[in-house]
Simulated scan of single mutants.
Amino acid sequence: MTSIPDTLHHQLITTLCYYILPVTVGASAAEGEEENYAAASVPAVLMMIFQYTDNSAFHCELLECLMALKADIVKDLLCVIAYGTPTSRPPAANLLFYYWPNLNPTLYDRRGVHIKFSDISSVLKAMFNKSAQAAKSDSISQTANSDSGESKNPKGWKPLVCQIEECDGDGTSEAVKVCHDHAVCLGACPDNPPPLYICIDCVEDIKREHSTVEFFDILMPMAQVSATCENKNCRSSEKNAIATCFSMECASYNGNKPIRYCTQCNNIRHNNRRGTDHVVHTTIGSPWAMDPQMQNYTIEAIVRLKAYLQKRAAYLVAMVCGLLWVCVHQHQIHLSRCWDVS
């Protein structure tokens, strides 16, 4: 991306999110393997985008695309925070606290977590950049941490517009459906390769000529990350959201946007009888229940951030304390067994 001008960054992100990643990261792994090569390369893709563009809209678009394809994307974010370049770590940390707001318990007194409440990328950039002046860092910190302040980066991202040139929306209608039929795609829009992303009006026009063609819904951007359950029929007394589902089956109840669930609703929607194929992102679990790689990423990420995030990292610091206690406890058990043998 170093040789690509900024004006082409949007086209590059669009190509990644709508044409490349869905058929690579979303592809099934080979027999006997846990993930395919593309899925294993996600941390490198994230680091490259975070490194060469500071547009938060592109960051959100890329991450939401990957969150719909990969259930353990939080591990990739922690990997970037732990081992990424100094420029790529701040956006990764910003997105971690934005899409997993339970890491910051002080946000639960608000209905939703907008990106302006968690856009700490400018602060972290100044902190990671050792050459930044202290006065400038303080000024940036005050601006980014203000609830009413506006970040210099764009907020959120917008979905694709309809790709049909003759669309009645004159290039303003949002694409809500996707078509994978090559004949229909090339017939309706010869200049764009399949798949074809189109608005609802153009879908109806195509159906009149091709009644058997199947169209699929696409996910819309998350306007905000809700701190409470978004299930309209939620009956739980504890409505704090702990999971985000990116499956279209669940998103259809939320205007085709990823939906946030409380513990009770998440257990109802996702269990061994239903929702087994849904891509659900839950809170970061107990450290001693993590796999070794996840534990390593978590510890390294905390080492990188604990001096800078203070209150935001309190939960992660507690996790590390738990990890250290387990390690010490296991070490004591091992020593006691050695003494018994001797």
Score class of each variant (00 low, 15 high):
Thr2Ala: 13
Ser3Val: 00
Ser3Met: 02
Leu8Arg: 02
His9Met: 08
His10Ser: 07
His10Glu: 09
Ile13Trp: 06
Tyr19Glu: 10
Leu21Arg: 00
Ala30Ile: 03
Glu31Pro: 01
Gly32Tyr: 00
Asn36His: 04
Val42Asn: 04
Pro43Thr: 03
Val45Leu: 13
Val45Trp: 07
Met47Glu: 13
Met48Gln: 12
Ile49Gly: 01
Ile49Val: 15
Asp54Leu: 09
Asn55His: 12
Ala57Glu: 01
His59Cys: 03
His59Pro: 02
Leu62Trp: 01
Cys65Ile: 00
Met67Cys: 12
Lys70Ile: 14
Ala71Gln: 10
Val74Phe: 12
Lys75Asp: 15
Leu78Lys: 06
Ser88Pro: 00
Ser88Phe: 06
Leu95Val: 08
Tyr98Ala: 04
Pro101Glu: 02
Thr106Ile: 09
Leu107Val: 07
Tyr108Val: 10
Arg110Asp: 04
Arg111Lys: 14
Gly112Asn: 13
Gly112Cys: 11
Ile115Ala: 00
Lys116Arg: 15
Asp119Met: 11
Lys125Pro: 00
Ala126His: 00
Phe128His: 07
Lys130Thr: 12
Ala134Leu: 11
Ala135Val: 06
Ala135Leu: 13
Lys136Asp: 15
Asp138Thr: 07
Asp138Gln: 15
Ser141Asn: 08
Ser141Ala: 15
Gln142Pro: 01
Gln142Trp: 06
Gln142Asn: 09
Asp147His: 11
Asp147Pro: 14
Gly149Thr: 12
Trp157Ser: 00
Cys162Ile: 05
Cys162Tyr: 03
Ile164Gln: 05
Cys167Lys: 06
Asp168Phe: 04
Gly169Ala: 01
Val178Ile: 15
Val184Trp: 05
Leu186Arg: 11
Ala188Tyr: 01
Cys189Val: 08
Pro190Cys: 02
Pro195Gly: 03
Phe215Cys: 03
Met220Thr: 07
Ala223Val: 14
Ser226Phe: 00
Cys229Tyr: 09
Lys232Arg: 13
Cys234Gln: 04
Glu238Trp: 08
Cys245Pro: 02
Met248Tyr: 13
Cys250His: 05
Ala251Leu: 06
Ile259Val: 12
Arg260Leu: 03
Arg269His: 13
His270Asp: 03
Asn271Ile: 04
Asn272Leu: 13
Arg274Ser: 10
Asp277Asn: 14
His278Met: 04
Val279Thr: 15
Ile284Trp: 11
Gly285Thr: 15
Ser286Arg: 13
Pro287Asp: 09
Gln295Cys: 05
Asn296Cys: 10
Ile299Gly: 01
Ala307Arg: 10
Lys311Ile: 07
Ala314Gly: 10
Tyr315Arg: 10
Gly322Glu: 10
Leu324Gln: 10
Leu324Asp: 13
Trp325Ser: 07
Val326Asp: 09
His329Met: 12
Val341Ser: 15
Ser342Asp: 11
